[in-house]
Design a protein around this nucleic acid. Sequence first.
DNA 1: GTGATGACAGGGA
DNA 2: ATCCCTGCCATCA
Length: 101
Amino acid sequence: MEPGKDQKIWQVVMAIPAGKVASYGQVAEMAGLGRQARYIGRALGKLPQGHAVPWYRVIRSNGQIAFPEGSEIYQEQVGRLEAEGVEVVNGRVAMRRFRWQ
DNA sequence: GTGATGACAGGGA
DNA sequence: ATCCCTGCCATCA
C-alpha cells in the first residue's frame, strides 16, 4: 500500500476543528476512501510517534468511543476530548458531531 | 492461493 | 435501547 493513503487520512483528521469530532465514515468519505471506514482505524494505528494527528476526535457513527470503556487508550481519548471542551458521558460524546457539507 | 480479522456502517428484529 | 447480520476492503496468518 502506498503511504499516501495514510497521509491523506491524517490530513483529513487534522482538519477536524478543535472541540468537534467526526465519525470514521465521515473521515473515510472526506479522504476519498468511500466506504472504507475500517481503513481509518488501521491508518490511525500506524501513527508514528511525534505525529500531530488528533486521532481522539475520530469516533464511531453512533457517537461512541471506539475503545472498550476503562481501557488506557479510552481514558486518554476522553481526557483529550474533555480538555477541548467535548463532553463525554458513558463512553459517548454528548456534543453534536462535526458536520462537513 | 484461501480464510479470518478489524479503532466501521447501516439496516432489521 | 440491544443484539445480530451483511457489506466493504486492506491486512495478516
